[in-house]
Amino acid sequence: MAKRRAPLFLKRKSYRRRRLRDAARLLPILGGFLVLLPILWSPSGSSGADTAWDGIYLFSVWLALVALAAALAPGLAHDAPEGDEADLLPQARGEDFR
């Protein structure tokens, strides 16, 4: 079966959109790392954790995740379907590509 040939290089706009999707995929991984971090702070066996500061930390991470997701959401919501026909790089116009 013939496959659609995917373009190798993209225009600046499409390139940005792809990286936005990458960011959206990476965000939960970053979040997972940050919320699992407290595990390492209090080795089991030690006395009770510092609830106040742990709480401050967790809620800061939480807020940051919400803010990042909010920053990414508008770009992702207006995302075109996966097709990248329009993404073909017009070499002739000499646009910036990477």
């Binding site: 742990d54 967790l58 995740l65 992702l76």
Partner: peptide, 21 residues
């Protein structure tokens, strides 16, 4: 159990923040 209750909400947070997956 102190702060352990937030885990119940952190899980969904991660899932929603990673909605693209």
């Amino acid at each position: 159990s102190g702060l352990e209750f937030v885990t119940i909400y952190l899980g969904p947070t991660l899932v929603f923040v990673g909605w693209w997956w």
